[in-house]
Nucleic acid binder design. Structure first.
Lengths: 342, 342
DNA sequence: TTCCAATACTAAACCGATTTAGTAATGACG
DNA sequence: CGTCATTACTAAATCGGTTTAGTATTGGAA
């Protein structure tokens, strides 16, 4: 059915070795130009397509990378994967994508499969629900000798390469921006303390307040996780404070949008004039006019894949944590204090 | 480094054959229970992980499916892939994802790579920009004898399996809904005539008008493609009609949102009171309160993958076109005619 | 003429599993 | 006691490439 090396060899009247040498351009070995031309012509004519399985079995390289993500629903994650795709395409790598659906067991099972498929390396985009099982995943990878890059978590930076965004700085930029708009009562809708990104954003928030000599008030920070329910509850609490905040820094745009959506109408009305800066700059952030800190997830993905390829080539490098810059996108929700415009 | 069948065999004092028989539960061959137990124990202890490359080379099956998408930026596409993931996980299949970035050449090159990797089948999510090259892709796949399912286009339904949504019916539902809200001047922001989905939506729009005895007016239909520029221009034209429409049926939510975004402030103000029903029900549609026709893209992905697996098992089946149902999600943008509420 | 080097190509081993065809040992039966 | 079936296992071929170590041929130099 499928044309093999041997078929081409027969048709061209040479040995499989010669076919292999010609098609892989092995110039160390002398070859008559005429033979070379003939083999190429025959291979093209017959539609020869090398079987990468066979090649990989011998070489131990598959040109295939495993990608583990918590879910593709998040357009933030989707963009990271897009960035990986782009870089992978340029480097002739294929991506085996596996979605864990936020489930550590699925993650474990899928990673096992990736290893059986002999991926050359693995890219892990961390998620709130799979963070706890990350050390176990890393252990398995280390034992298998398969390189790995972790995205969006730096808790294991001494053991393994990771790529994150400058979350603390991003948060600081966002809050400083609100302060410059004249706000003093600035709340933080937090993602809790379960992820290093959420912790960094809180830390940036505090730093910005401190630099402006605004005392930190613990009741201005609410939110236990990146879940909608937690966010809605937290936002409700913030808006119900005796002296409600005039501005909000949300750890995530989606969190903000969903929370607003879920709030009772009264609370939602109270929020109408508040200033907001969010995080992650989803597509819809533009439609909603929410100012947001953009991490350019594509760059994250590209950088991670680039790093993984480097690591595969030079396994001995010391692990490194790449922190990519972020930038603030200002939109309508950056309202100056006291404004009552829509 | 990696534990092989042979290593397990040596350790357990049996032949590789026996190891293979035990681990694959080949009961046709008699095996002493004690041997079986020992082999299993040794394999587990040594962390044996079968090399699927070797297995595939022999069997001709890789348990790997190629997925070709125009881009992961669209959350609609991302959801389709999510659905595939889910079904794939249940069937022990791996997905090789390739993003063509809307470029036919990248698509061709990537598909070539997928074939070299011996995927068992290919899932193609069509995009406006890669539709023209689809016949060529299908030809190559047919020649290679690799099964394929096409998503979101039924132009080749006699040759190849396809999975689409009931777009005509969805459009009819949307427009009928607007008619029931009392609207008569209903415009259609179209996706042009380049894709069968856009054509079907237009056709559903016309059917709904006809059933309500509203004469079709060609100036009420605008839009040449699913691009933002085209949509903004089209919407501008519609809103500037001497008697502007009171309601809009948009071929796509994103198109609508982006067009609004791009419009001049004056036109945007004119639209504030118009009723809208969109298509595709993106996440942000809920945040913006846009009524929308939901195709449940996950189901599309699941159905497509299911069909592909069936096709792989039974290559002789006649090609089939699956049309999945859609449903209308009603939100704030479903304003009755003459309303001036926000 | 003989020897060596360069040229052009190839035979065979190998990657790690599965599978087919077969062997050795045991036991039952006539 | 010989034969045949059954049980428990294995040797070797195979998948489709790449690579190593080689062979045959030619030409030039001594």
């Amino acid at each position: 059915m499928r044309v093999r090396n041997l078929d081409v060899a027969r048709e061209a009247g040479v040995s499989p070795t010669t076919v292999s040498l010609v098609l892989n351009d092995r110039t160390q070995v002398a070859l008559a130009p005429e033979t070379k031309r003939r083999v190429q012509e025959v291979a093209a004519r017959m539609g020869y397509r090398p079987n990468l399985l066979a090649r990989s079995l011998l070489s131990g390289r598959t040109q295939t990378l495993g990608v583990i993500i918590p879910s593709l629903s998040s357009s933030y994650v989707a963009r990271i994967v897009e960035g990986m795709q782009e870089e992978a395409g340029d480097s002739n790598q294929q991506l085996l994508l596996t979605d864990t659906r936020h489930d550590p067991e699925t993650e474990a099972a899928q990673m096992e499969l990736l290893l059986r498929h002999s991926v050359d390396g693995v890219l892990i985009v961390t998620g709130e629900s799979t963070l706890r099982s990350l050390p176990e995943r890393l252990r398995v990878l280390r034992e298998a000798g398969v390189p790995c890059v972790v995205i969006d978590d730096q808790s294991h930076a001494e053991q393994v390469d990771c790529v994150v965004s400058q979350d603390r700085i991003g948060a600081e930029m966002a809050v400083t921006h609100l302060i410059e708009l004249g706000h003093r009562r600035i709340a933080h809708l937090s993602g809790g303390s379960g992820t290093s990104t959420a912790r960094d954003r809180l830390s940036g928030y505090r730093r910005a307040l401190k630099r402006a000599s605004i005392p930190f008030q613990s009741e201005w920070v609410a939110g236990r996780s990146f879940s909608v329910a937690a966010a809605a509850q937290a936002l409700e609490a913030l808006v119900s404070l005796p002296k409600p905040p005039t501005a909000y820094f949300a750890a995530n745009d989606r969190l903000w949008a969903e929370a607003i959506q879920a709030l009772r109408p009264r609370s939602a009305r109270l929020l109408r004039n508040a200033a907001v800066v969010g995080y992650a700059n989803y597509d819809f952030s533009a439609y909603l006019g929410i100012s947001s800190v953009d991490q350019s997830p594509q760059s994250l993905g590209k950088a991670a894949l680039r790093r993984l390829l480097d690591r595969i080539e030079t396994p001995s490098m010391p692990p490194q944590c790449l922190e990519l810059p972020v930038n603030l996108v200002v939109r309508n929700s950056s309202k100056p204090v006291g404004s009552s415009a829509p």
